[in-house]
């Protein structure tokens, strides 16, 4: 493994300096989180106090229940989970199907079609935004969850199909051939052989999908106009508008919305890092 200085000339001092710089960098990168948590446990008075105070006095734990009841938090959470479940299910069903067809079956036009699908990575979402909205509006499905969930049932995204295809292509084809000799169908080969061997890639897709749904702001803003249907991300922006002076509650609500992605990240960390690399490499 190549290190910055090469192995033998890396003196202890070089490593020490690296270590110290990394500690300082980590402090800088974690500072906004510390600031967030610290502010979320203070009174608004203490947040504004000069000189700067880092330790809440007293710890106002009640900010959290207050923030969560000031907005219909559980309603938003429930809505977000509904969207999430349907998007995950659609993506994890149809993206592996397409990836399998594009990597482990040979048929005419396969590579051309795959290339065409890949071109969608180049098309900015801003271009498709308005016609897609008009389509949903003319179908009468604005203000439902369909515009946010149905597209996931059509391959998820070219990005996921690409990632899974790269992974599937790396598995030995003899596995499939043996199964076909035993009379298995491609459907069975996909779900009983290929998918169980592709957990890292599928977990990566699942985590990306989660992060996408959890943080999506534009989609819910455009498609949902009934406040009861809002997701957490939109809910937080509404909260900000309504309680613009209650910085402590806003910070508490913001910390809560950050927790699930961080937990998911820690669970899927090892797979996830490999997944990002897969998309960046040939």
């Amino acid at each position: 493994m190549a290190s910055l200085g090469g192995r033998r000339t890396t003196f202890l001092t070089g490593k020490t300096v690296t270590f110290i710089v990394l500690v300082l960098g980590s402090v800088i990168y974690l500072m906004p989180f510390l600031w967030l948590v610290r502010s979320s446990l203070m009174s608004t008075g203490q947040i504004f106090r000069m000189p700067l105070e880092w330790i809440p006095k007293p710890f106002r734990w009640q900010n959290y229940p207050q923030a969560l009841t000031a907005m219909p938090f559980f309603r938003y959470l429930f809505n977000t989970l509904i969207v999430l479940v349907f998007v995950e299910a659609g993506t994890l069903l149809t993206a592996p199907m397409a990836a399998f067809a594009f990597s482990r079956l040979r048929w005419r036009g396969r590579d051309l079609l795959f290339f065409i699908i890949l071109t969608s990575l180049m098309i900015p979402y801003a271009v498709t935004l308005i016609p897609t909205f008009i389509l949903w509006k003319s179908l009468g499905f604005v203000n439902t969850y369909l515009p946010l969930t149905v597209p996931a049932w059509f391959g998820g995204s070219a990005y996921y199909i690409f990632m899974l295809r790269q992974f599937f292509a790396g598995l030995p084809i003899e596995l499939d051939e043996a199964a076909y000799l035993d009379g298995a169908t491609p459907w069975q080969v996909l779900w009983k052989i290929v998918v169980p061997l592709s957990k890292p890639a599928l977990i990566t897709v699942a985590v990306f999908t989660f992060l996408g749904v959890w943080g999506d702001l534009m989609g819910p803003i455009i498609y949902l106009n009934d406040a009861k249907k809002y997701t957490l991300a939109v809910g937080l922006t509404i909260f900000r508008g309504a309680y613009s002076t209650k910085w402590n509650l806003l910070m508490a609500a913001s910390s809560v919305i950050m927790i699930p992605p961080i937990v998911i990240y820690f669970i899927g960390q090892n797979y996830f890092q490999r997944g990002i690399v897969m998309t960046g490499m040939k």
């Binding site: 149809t94 397409a98 048929w107 391959g155 491609p186």
Partner: peptide, 11 residues
């Protein structure tokens, strides 16, 4: 074609 269909239609 069958397995890739959702992805192709989606595109």
């Amino acid at each position: 074609i069958m397995l890739a269909l959702p992805g192709i239609v989606g595109y």
